[in-house]
Design a protein around this nucleic acid. Structure first.
Lengths: 133, 133
DNA sequence: CTGTATCCGTGAGGATACTG
DNA sequence: CAGTATCCTCACGGATACAG
C-alpha cells in the first residue's frame, strides 16, 4: 500500500502535535507548576532557606521519594539551590534562587484568582449537578 | 495496643493533609489549569464560540473521549457554556462564559512569565546535566 | 540526616466500536 | 454530528528496605 492508512495519518498528526505541544513554553511552565508538590515546596521556601528535614515535616504527606524528586527537579531547573554542609551528620539547605523568586508573583496571582472566583466555580458545579440529577 | 503505631500516625497525617490540600482554592485552580487539554480548549474558545467538530480538528491530538470530558468539566465549572441546536444533524456550540473570560488574563500572565524566563530554565537545566555527567 | 533502589497497585487516558 | 461505552496499557507515585 503506497498511501497511508487513516490510522497512520492520525498517528503522525498526534506525534507532530505532541512535539509542538511539549515545546510550548506555557505548557512547560504549567507542567512544572501543576506538579502536586512543586507549589508547596516553593511556598515553604518563600520565607527563606529550609533544611530537608524541615520541608519533610512542614509538607505533611510527602513521601521521601517525592520530596527528593521534586527538589531535584527544581534544582535542575534553576528555581531552587541546594547547599550541602559536610558536617556529621550532613546538613542540606534548600533556598529559592532569584529565578525561583521571580515566580512568586505568578503564584500569588493564581492564589488571588482562585480565592476571588472559586466560589463561583463551586456554585456553578452545584447547579450543574442538580440540573443533571 | 492503646497508642498508635508510627504508620498509623503517618496515615492519619497524610489523610488530614490531603483533605486540607484538596480544599485549597489555588490547588483546585492549578489542577484545572494543569490538565493537558484545558488551556488549549480555553484558548481555542478565546476568539469566540466554536462547534464541537471545529475544536476536534483545531486541537490536533485530542481523543474524542478527552475532548468531551474536558468540555464537560469546564461546563460543570461554569467556565464554558454549551448550546445545543436540535437541527438534523444536531449542532453544538461551546463558548466562554464571563467567568471563563476572567481567567484569560491569568493565562496570559503564565504565558508571559514562561516566554520571559523559560530560556533561563533551559540554560540551568543544561548546566545541571553537564555538571552531573 | 539525607538520601538511593526496588517493587507494585492504581487510575488517567488512548483506541476502538457503537448510537441517537 | 456529537457523543457514549468498553477495554487495556503504562507511567506515576506510595511503601519499603537499604546506604553514605
Amino acid at each position: 500500500m503506497v498511501t497511508k492508512t487513516a490510522a497512520e495519518r492520525r498517528d503522525e498528526a498526534r506525534q507532530a502535535f505532541d512535539a509542538y505541544f511539549s515545546e510550548c513554553p506555557s505548557r512547560k511552565l504549567l507542567d512544572r507548576l501543576s506538579d502536586k508538590w512543586v507549589t508547596l515546596v516553593l511556598s515553604a521556601l518563600a520565607a527563606g532557606p529550609r533544611r530537608y528535614s524541615h520541608l519533610a515535616r512542614r509538607i505533611a504527606g510527602v513521601s521521601q521519594k517525592m520530596l527528593t524528586q521534586t527538589l531535584r527537579g527544581l534544582e535542575r531547573d534553576g528555581l531552587v539551590s541546594r547547599t550541602l554542609t559536610p558536617s556529621v551528620p550532613v546538613r542540606v539547605d534548600y533556598a529559592l534562587t532569584p529565578l525561583g523568586e521571580s515566580l512568586m508573583p505568578l503564584v500569588a496571582a493564581i492564589k488571588s484568582w482562585a480565592e476571588t472566583h472559586i466560589g463561583d466555580v463551586e456554585a456553578a458545579r452545584e447547579r450543574y449537578d442538580v440540573d443533571n440529577a
